[in-house]
Design a protein around this nucleic acid. Structure first.
Length: 499
RNA sequence: GGCGCUGUGGCCGAGUGGCUAGGCAGAGGUCUGCAAAACCUUCUACAGCGGUUCGAAUCCGCUCAGCGCCUCCA
C-alpha cells in the first residue's frame, strides 16, 4: 500500500462548501493551477502567504508520491484599474510614472517576485506561463465564446453575456451569488453603456489611443480581459478539466466565478474538481492590502524597518509563523506572534540538527515505545492529509522533537526502537520539516571557518573551566553572547548556536 | 443593503459532540561552578444568553463584537 493510499487527503472544496476526499482525475498525477501575481508592484507578505500555502500543498502531494504539474501564471497584461472605460492600465501607469517600457516594469517585478519566493524557500512551479505569451489562445477563446453566442461585440470590445450563460448554466455557484441580486445590488459605475447588463465582463477590451499594451485582433487593436488568461492557460497546460485550482480568498468573486463561466461556456465541462482558497493575512484584524496601506514588504520585515516592527525577522521564522495556522483561517501579523514563532522555530531546528546527528545503537526493543512512535509518525501524515493542517503537523513535530531531545540526553536509548522504526522516524521527522514544510536553517553556509574558531574558543574555555578559572570562562561566554553566539554546556561537551 | 466568515487560556493558534493540541510566556524541580539549553511536573479557555443531547468549544437560535466579498486585490 502506497503512502498516498494509506493517508488519503481530504480537502475543503469551495465549490461544494464541504470537505471532500481527494481523488485525482488520473490516479498518480495531479494538475494544480494557482493564480499568480500581477507584476506591477512589489509582492507583500499577504501575497506571499497564499503562494506559501500552495507551496506546502504542492510539496505534500509530491511527498505522498504524486506526480504534480503545478502551473502558476504571471499576469503581465495591464488590466484596468476599474471596470470603467477610462481606467488606466496598471502596468502602463507604472511605466509612465517610472519612465520605463511596460515590459521593463513587468520584468522588474517578476524578478522581484521570484527573489522573494526564493528567500521564503518556495519551490518554483512546473510551468509559469505569462498572459502576454498567450494572446493568440485568448483571442481564440473569445472567438469560441462569440460563436457559442455567449459573448457579444460592441465597438471593438467583447463582453461575456452573463445572463445568457446563466440560462443554461449556473453563474455564481462558486461564490454563492444569485444573478438577480448581483443585477440589483448597489454599484452602478459610469461608462457601462457598452454592456448589456452590468454584471457582464470584458473578455476583450478595445485599446484607447493612449493604451500602450495592445494587440491586433479580429475586433481591432485591444487587450484581453483579466479573467480570460487564467482560463486559457489552465486549459492549455492542464486540460479542460483538472484537479486543483487555488488562489486567495479574495479571488473567489468575481475572478474564479468568471473563469468557471468561461470554461463551461467554451467546453461545456466543469473545469476544476477542487477549488481551494487561502485566507487573508491581517494586520490588527484588517486585511493586509496595498490599497489600505498596511502591507509589509519582505525586505521591511527582514530588516525590521517597518514602523509596526520592533526588529527584523528571518524568512524562515515567518514561514514557520505562517505554518502555525491553517491556510483557510485568517492570520494576524504582529511583533509578539513573530517573536514567539522565532523561539519555536529555533527549537524545532535544534531538534532537526539532533535528528541528523543521531546514531542508532542496537538494543532491546521496547514494544510500547515502538508502538507509540509508529502511531506518532502516522499522525503526522494523518494531520497533514486533513486538509493540509500544517498547524497540527507542527504540533506532532514538536512531540517528536521532545523525543529527539530525549535521545540526545540519553533518557531514551535509540535501541529501544527497532532499526526500521528508528530510521522511518528520522526520515519523516526531517522529511516533514524540510521537504513538506519547506523549513531550513536560516543561516549556515560556509561555517567551516566559524566552526574552527569556535572549537578553539570552546577548547580554551574548557581548559579554564578545568582550572576553575570562572572569570575567564564567563567572559568568553558573555562576550560571545553579545556577538550573538550562545554556548550550551551539555553532557557530551559544549555546543554553540548562532542566534 | 446582499452573501459569507470569525470570536478559544497572558499572547499566537489547532480543534472531525465524550479522550492533554502545539508554540511563546509564567511557576516548581532535575542537571550545571553559575547560566543557557534540555528533561520532568504544573497553572490560566472556549464572547454572552437560551435550546437540542446522557454529554457541546464543537450542532441550532438570538444578542454583542470584529472581519471579508459585492470595484483592482493573494
Amino acid at each position: 500500500m502506497s503512502i498516498k493510499d494509506k493517508f488519503p487527503i481530504t480537502l475543503y472544496n469551495t465549490l461544494s462548501k464541504q470537505k471532500e476526499q481527494f481523488e485525482p482525475i488520473n490516479e498518480k498525477h495531479v494538475g494544480m493551477y494557482v493564480c499568480g501575481p500581477t507584476v506591477y508592484s512589489d509582492v507583500h507578505l499577504g501575497n506571499v502567504r497564499t503562494f506559501m500555502s500552495f507551496d506546502v500543498i504542492y510539496r505534500y502531494l509530491m511527498y505522498l508520491g504524486y506526480k504534480v504539474r503545478y502551473v502558476r501564471n504571471i499576469t503581465d497584461v495591464g488590466h484596468l484599474e476599474n471596470d470603467a472605460d477610462e481606467g488606466e492600465d496598471k502596468i502602463a501607469k507604472k511605466a509612465r510614472l517610472e519612465q520605463l517600457e511596460p515590459m521593463e516594469i513587468v520584468q522588474h517585478y517578476t524578478n522581484g517576485f521570484h527573489d522573494v519566493l526564493k528567500q521564503f524557500n518556495l519551490l518554483p512551479p512546473s510551468i509559469e506561463p505569462s498572459a502576454t505569451g498567450h494572446i493568440m489562445e485568448q483571442i481564440e477563446m473569445v472567438q469560441a465564446l462569440l460563436e457559442k453566442g455567449l459573448a457579444y461585440e460592441v465597438n471593438g470590445s467583447v463582453y461575456f453575456d452573463v445572463s445568457k450563460y446563466d440560462k443554461s448554466y449556473n453563474y455564481g455557484k462558486l461564490s454563492g451569488r444569485k444573478i438577480e441580486e448581483l443585477m440589483e445590488s448597489g454599484r452602478m459605475l459610469d461608462s457601462q453603456d457598452e454592456k448589456r447588463n452590468k454584471i457582464d465582463f470584458a473578455i476583450w477590451k478595445k485599446a484607447s489611443p493612449a493604451h500602450i499594451m495592445r494587440w491586433n485582433s479580429p475586433w481591432g487593436e485591444g487587450f484581453p480581459g483579466w479573467h480570460l488568461e487564467c482560463t486559457v492557460m489552465s486549459t492549455k497546460y492542464l486540460g479542460e478539466t483538472f484537479d486543483i485550482h487555488g488562489g486567495g480568498m479574495d479571488l473567489v468573486f468575481p475572478h474564479h466565478e468568471c473563469e468557471i463561466a468561461q470554461s463551461v461556456g467554451t467546453t461545456g465541462k466543469e473545469p476544476v474538481k477542487y477549488w481551494l482558497h487561502s485566507n487573508m493575512l491581517t494586520v490588527n484584524g484588517q486585511k493586509m492590502s496595498k490599497s489600505l496601506g498596511n502591507s509589509f514588504l519582505p525586505h521591511e520585515l527582514f530588516a525590521g524597518t517597518h514602523k509596526l516592527l520592533d526588529r527584523g525577522y528571518g524568512p524562515m521564522v515567518v514561514r514557520f509563523f505562517m505554518l502555525q495556522s491553517h491556510y483557510s483561517s485568517t492570520l494576524d501579523f504582529s511583533n509578539d506572534a513573530l517573536t514567539a514563532a522565532e523561539k519555536g522555530y529555533k527549537r524545532l531546528m535544534e531538534g532537526y540538527k539532533i535528528a541528523n546527528g543521531l546514531e542508532f545503537v542496537e538494543g532491546t526493543v521496547d514494544t510500547e515505545l515502538e508502538t507509540n512512535v509508529k502511531a506518532t509518525i502516522d499522525s503526522l501524515f494523518e494531520n497533514m492529509s486533513q486538509d493540509f493542517n500544517t498547524a497540527k503537523a507542527l504540533a506532532v513535530l514538536f512531540e517528536m522533537t521532545t523525543t529527539m531531545n530525549n535521545f540526545k540526553a540519553g533518557n531514551i536509548k535509540t535501541g529501544l526502537l527497532s532499526k526500521e522504526t528508528f530510521d522511518t522516524f528520522i526520515k519523516h521527522y526531517t522529511g516533514f520539516i524540510t521537504e513538506v514544510l519547506g523549513l531550513k536553517e536560516e543561516k549556515g553556509e560556509d561555517n567551516q571557518l566559524v566552526d574552527g574558531v569556535m572549537d578553539l574558543l570552546i577548547k580554551l574555555r574548557n581548559d579554564a573551566k578545568a582550572a576553575k578559572n570562572y572569570t575567564v570562562t564567563d567572559k568568553i561566554r558573555d562576550d560571545l553572547k553579545t556577538l550573538g553566539v550562545s554556548l550550551k554546556d551539555g553532557k557530551e561537551g559544549t555546543e554553540y548556536s548562532i542566534d
